[in-house]
Amino acid sequence: MTPPTTPPIPGPSPSPRPSDTTAGRGPVDTSVAHPARRYDFLLGGKDNFAADRDSARRLIEVFPHLRTAAVENRRLLERVVRHLTQAGVRQFLDIGTGIPTSPNVHEIAQDIALDARVVYVDNDPVVMTHARALHTSHPLGATAYIEADLRDPAAILGSPDLRAALDFTQPIAVLLIAVLHFVTDDDQPYDAVAALAAAMPAGSFLAISHTTFDPLPADVRRRLTALTDPSAGHGPFRPRTHDEVARFFDGADLLDPGLVPIVEWHPDSDPSPHATASEAIGYAGVARLP
């Protein structure tokens, strides 16, 4: 199959003014880059602001494959959801969902099982506004939306919307796709993941993708690391090594092929990757929870 062509990074697109609000919310600070909106820009979307586009372009100057990495992460999400749905999973908790980009989790899962149920979680009210407007479930399934932060798992687990949408007597797949690298060590990411995993029913799954600088040349690692400093203006970012990402799966049973570069996680499945590990710069793994 011929790999799809990658369109150029889009230019500025019409966006709400910095003083705009989301429905029922206060003002959204659009002067600061947000990872969900930057990711939307990298995927060719239009729901982003000047700060998000500027941040992406500055990162691309150091790492020209940034858009490729975003696209490959999206392909990974599709492979993971298809794999789990085909294995019988019918419930998904997608934390750090980002701005809707078709196919979304419920679309992927319900393409296989119409009764699949998905709860989307994000801490950006812009994301949640778009999610509520665009995530329409098949009548046999369900979608729900929680505005909450991964750093506060108790708020996610205590949400009545979560309990109304998902059956906690049946397995749930927790999706932490391209979100943990935005949680610094000071915010106790391992404790947050452990709390989520401990709350899931027996036989549930944990799926993670996480940015790493492991495959990059030393000079590129150094320049990218400098951009993770808070003073650089790109927001919190914490790439992790293979061993550091593996710690998130402590106590769980990693499925084949284990914790591997994103492009090596079931590469023969659809949609197949079209990049190298040094272009996708991420690890991926799926584990069965006890």
Rank of each mutant, 00 (worst) to 15 (best):
I9T: 14
D122A: 06
L76T: 08
A133H: 13
H83W: 15
N73V: 02
I60R: 03
G285W: 04
L140H: 14
H210M: 10
I9G: 07
S231G: 08
A113D: 15
S13T: 13
A142N: 12
D191N: 09
A173C: 09
P18Y: 07
T5V: 14
I208Y: 04
P16D: 13
V28E: 08
S13L: 06
R221Y: 03
S204H: 02
T211F: 12
G141F: 03
A226I: 02
L162F: 00
R238K: 09
N73G: 15
P7R: 13
A218R: 14
P217A: 11
V62N: 03
R58L: 01
P18W: 08
A69G: 05
D115E: 15
R75A: 08
T228R: 11
T184W: 03
T241D: 02
F205G: 08
S272L: 03
V127T: 12
R163N: 10
R151G: 02
A275V: 07
A116K: 04
D29Y: 00
A280N: 06
L289F: 09
P290H: 10
F168A: 03
A142K: 15
H181S: 00
H266Y: 01
S159G: 05
I95F: 04
P290T: 04
G44W: 14
H130C: 10
D268E: 15
L224E: 10
T169D: 13
E78P: 00
A164W: 02
A284I: 05
G203H: 11
F168D: 00
V193F: 01
G26D: 11
V245Y: 10
R17P: 11
L224G: 06
D29V: 00
V80W: 02
L162M: 07
N73Y: 07
D256K: 11
H106Q: 09
V32L: 08
I177S: 15
M1F: 11
H266F: 02
D268M: 05
L42W: 05
G258E: 04
L93N: 09
P153H: 04
I172T: 07
F248K: 09
L216P: 02
G285F: 03
R221A: 00
H130L: 12
P12I: 00
D185A: 15
S137W: 09
A154P: 01
D268S: 14
P201H: 05
T241A: 01
T228W: 10
D191C: 01
P100D: 06
I172R: 10
T276I: 01
H83I: 00
R288G: 06
L84C: 12
L114Y: 06
R53T: 04
D115C: 14
R53Q: 12
A131R: 05
A33E: 08
D250N: 10
G96Q: 04
P160C: 13
V245Q: 00
P100W: 06
R221D: 02
D124N: 14
D185F: 07
P171K: 06
H234R: 01
V220I: 14
L254S: 08
P35S: 05
Q86L: 13
T101M: 06
A178K: 03
R75S: 10
G45Y: 04
L76Y: 12
D229W: 10
Y120V: 05
I60C: 01
L114V: 13
A56H: 07
L150M: 14
D161W: 00
D152E: 12
F248W: 10
D52F: 06
A218I: 13
D20Q: 09
T6E: 11
E107S: 01
